[in-house]
Nucleic acid binder design. Structure first.
Lengths: 323, 323
DNA sequence: ATCGGGTGTGTAACCGATTACAGTTTTATA
DNA sequence: TATAAAACTGTAATCGGTTACACACCCGAT
């Protein structure tokens, strides 16, 4: 790889002039600009980002902290982030942190050591040690987070509950997501705000994670534990799919014997039979906007909204009964 | 963030001594070592990786090039990579490249500018411009790739085809993956090596991608185009799931009317009804081993095998008929 | 003719680490 | 006790960029 020094030599100018020509700041004569551009082309030169980062005390990278990339909801998020970041000349360092692990602090330290320009985190309790490193929380957001992009989960809960209430439920089972995940609580609040004023029977089954393993377990448990359930509000699509499968295995017909609604709208919801009716979280958009907000913060651009709340949407497929 | 200079001052030694104490090379007296360690703790010092990278002309990062992170096969791969990389003190820069895009060269340049220590790529035709930057190909591997970790796709094809042949197929449909993906061809070779010696009827339907959109389209098309198919060998699980759904929508019973086998064993294959019988690619292990191989290359460690071929496995669930 | 500002350019300091080199002290060996 | 080797330490160069600063030139206004 050629260096700026070699370019300067080839072009017959100083490194300062090359740098100015490259970054188009400061005065550079047309003649010099042209010589530099020729030299760059001739030597196939690309500036070393590491050297830049060192001087600027800030790299063109953003750190991304995710709780579990094997959860299919996150890849979409990542895609949105990656796309926006790339469009803005940033790249993404990946940090995968098992739920509740202490690894998140290690990653934050690492991000600091790498001079990342900012951090996107979907892990609760992410704190910056370095004040010059902005953080935008996404998806899993607390009251106290300054900058955040997330879904209106109360509304999501309401949409899901209304969809069920519109379809004459008998006994409803709510599978509630882990209490450690802020969104789970909001969804439950939304759901209950719809169910409580009615006289519908419901029970709540509490879960501890969003993993596929627990989804499978849970699906088995609920059919033993709760008899005569005919409507299920699941905390995410994984749980919904697991319940559907278990129901079908037990010879129950969906949606006639039991109707199910999910949450997230992961791509697979369309690929099962019957298609899963679910609440769509705009994952790609969430990621894209979060990256956008972070980069605005980095560049100290005007910020219209510190917390961006996106609306979920009801995706009607075939796992609920006809109205 | 504290710098090495501040640590040196606090400890009453030179920066050279601090550096030697940090990296445990060169001579450092016990007294000095202790003073440095105290200073580090007192100032909460972590060495700046960017400065290190600049001097070493190599960072503690590896570049990862993936063709489509929204394909659920890749997150597992990523998880394996991330885990191994982290264990070895490396972090991962993400590069998502739409199939066939020219973006891959941009990313390779970027990786160069970032002084990455090496690159893992699942994108065909990835070439290094910088000889000191080793590349390990994974999953999508060509003959000419020096270092690679991949699945034995011929064997995978054979396993799938045998599973079908063991279960008295009438008319078989092979959904072949895109020709641009090396593995697709091998799978087809494997499948045909089993089918051709028999007198079973089969047809081949060629596809252009592994996307969910094409999977849905294809599922519709094949039921119109190919009548009386009763066994389907899909190029990946997405296509298999789409076919299952379409079949069920048309009132066909799986596996009695039509049996389906997939490829990949993405986590969802367990969550559909009936469970999808498929060929399991050890995605996590693939990623883990690829990272391991790359880091060996980076450290110029002994390498026992330049190309690592992992074996696929038949996962029997319920989408095939009884033997 | 003189002054001032706008242009254009190069030298050198700087970012924060590693390490070559030189100098000093301690220790071991003859 | 002399002497070499080992142990320890600091100064300064280095990695490859950016930019403060100084200097030189050109042009128009006084």
């Amino acid at each position: 790889m050629a260096t700026i020094k070699e370019v300067a030599k080839y072009a017959g100018v100083s490194v300062a002039t090359v740098s100015r020509a490259l970054n188009k700041n400061g005065y550079v004569s047309e003649a010099a600009q042209k010589k530099v551009e020729e030299a760059i082309k001739a030597l196939d030169y690309f500036p070393n980002e590491v050297a830049r980062s060192l001087y600027q005390k800030r790299s063109k990278m953003i750190g991304l902290l995710l709780p579990d990339i094997s959860n299919p909801y996150f890849p979409l998020l990542m895609k949105g982030i990656e796309e926006n970041a790339r469009e803005n000349g940033y790249s993404v360092i990946l940090g995968n942190v098992e739920e509740g692990s202490k690894l998140k602090q290690d990653y934050m330290t690492l991000f600091g050591q790498q001079n990342v320009a900012g951090v996107l985190s979907a892990v609760e309790g992410t704190v910056s040690q370095n004040h010059s490193m902005p953080i935008v929380m996404l998806d899993r957001v607390l009251e106290e987070d300054d900058y955040a992009v997330y879904t209106n989960d109360v509304k999501g809960g309401i949409l899901a509950a209304q969809a069920i209430m519109d379809r004459k439920p008998g006994n409803v089972l709510i599978i509630a997501g882990p209490k450690s995940v802020p969104g789970s609580i909001d969804r439950l609040i939304g759901i209950l705000s719809v169910l409580n004023p009615t006289d519908v029977n419901y029970e709540i089954h509490q879960t501890r994670s969003f993993t596929i393993e627990e989804a499978k377990e849970t699906a088995e448990v609920i059919f033993r534990k709760y008899k005569k359930i005919d409507s299920v509000l699941a905390s995410n699509d994984l749980f919904a799919l697991a319940v559907m499968k278990e129901a079908q295995t037990r010879g129950l017909h969906i949606p006639n014997d039991i109707q199910v609604i999910g949450y997230d709208d992961i791509p697979f919801s369309q690929l099962v039979y019957p298609g899963l009716t679910t609440i769509s979280q705009p994952a790609f958009k969430l990621g894209y906007q979060a990256s956008d907000l972070l980069i605005r913060l980095i560049n100290k651009n005007k910020i219209s909204k510190k917390r961006i709340k996106l609306d979920p949407k009801l995706m009607i497929r075939d796992s609920l009964r006809k109205k």
